[in-house]
Computed example of a mutant assay.
Amino acid sequence: MNAVRFCDLIAAEWLKTWSLRSAPWVYLVTALAAIGFNVGQAYDTYHYWNEQNAGSHAREFVRDGIPVQSVFTDDASIVFALATLAIGAVAIAGEYSTGQIRTTFTAVPARRSVMAAKLAVTAGVMTVFGAVVALVSFCTTQAILGLRDVGVSIDHPGALRAVLASALLAPVCAVVGMGIGAVLRHAGTSIVAGVVVLLLAPFLFSEDHHWSAVLNHALPMSAWHRLMEIPFTPPVPYPWTSTGAWIVYAAWALGAVALAGTVVHRRDQ
């Protein structure tokens, strides 16, 4: 398919993305929920700050990297991952459920090109969305912590990594949701399967055994936790690197893309 025709597919998928009136509200509510959790924790730190020995406590607080971990909390990451996973799953499974996918494939028989356009639009939108939410969270949380002189700048060790890891969580989860949606072709089932893979699977593996630790490290949410780690995190029997966590991000995204492209090409409508 030539570049002009593919641009038309991109434009069509862009229109589909924003054709539902609920779409902007879904993004808005997700952003407000994630940012709200982060700001809430930062405010708790500010509100319950102990003024006694504040100088030494502040130095330890910053030295241990706690302001960096405050950029994106565990609660915010769960909401963010779940919402973006659902958006990605519905982007494909929703078309199968309504039968609209038949019209799409009739108009454009090149199924892989259609899927590539869907993935490109969703990943692009999610990357921008994730970046906005992560940056707003960083600015607001550090502004609140700064009232106690414990806020940090973006060039503080680990701060940029935390922002990038949280921002990229959105496109990774969305693309994984699309891959699952392409296989299961049902929105509800795809979301449930995605929750099991992204949010529940990490609880099935521990750090006590090598094989279990390796499987745990290979999961997207575990990779996010590794990228958000702070210096005083207790050592684990089988540690891994932030480079390995970035590789996990990339592997899941690329694997989901390959899965979606293969499934849509080999299976009937």
Rank of each mutant, 00 (worst) to 15 (best):
M1H: 11
N2P: 09
A3S: 15
A3H: 06
R5D: 14
F6E: 09
F6L: 12
C7A: 15
L9D: 05
A12S: 12
E13Y: 12
R21A: 09
A23I: 07
L28H: 11
L28S: 04
V29M: 12
V29K: 05
A33T: 10
A34E: 02
F37P: 09
F37Q: 07
N38Q: 07
N38M: 02
Q41E: 15
W49G: 04
W49R: 08
E51Q: 10
A58D: 08
R59H: 13
F61N: 07
D64W: 06
D64C: 04
G65C: 03
G65S: 03
I66R: 05
S70T: 13
S70N: 14
V71L: 11
F72Q: 12
T73I: 04
D74H: 09
F80N: 03
L82H: 00
A86G: 06
G88C: 02
I92P: 00
A93F: 02
G94L: 07
E95T: 09
Q100W: 14
T103G: 15
F105W: 13
P109C: 03
R111Q: 03
R112Y: 05
K118H: 07
G130V: 10
V133C: 02
S137G: 13
F138D: 06
L147G: 03
V150T: 11
V152E: 03
A159E: 06
L160I: 06
L164F: 13
A170E: 04
V175R: 03
M178L: 11
I180C: 14
V183M: 10
V192Q: 01
A193M: 06
A193V: 09
V196Q: 04
L198W: 07
L199F: 03
D208M: 12
H210P: 00
A213L: 04
L215T: 13
A218V: 00
L219E: 02
H225N: 07
R226D: 06
M228F: 01
E229N: 10
F232V: 15
P234C: 04
P234R: 05
P235F: 14
P239R: 08
T241C: 02
T241A: 02
S242A: 15
W246P: 05
W246L: 12
I247S: 04
Y249K: 08
A250E: 06
G255I: 05
A256T: 03
L259S: 04
G261S: 11
T262L: 15
V263M: 06
D268V: 08
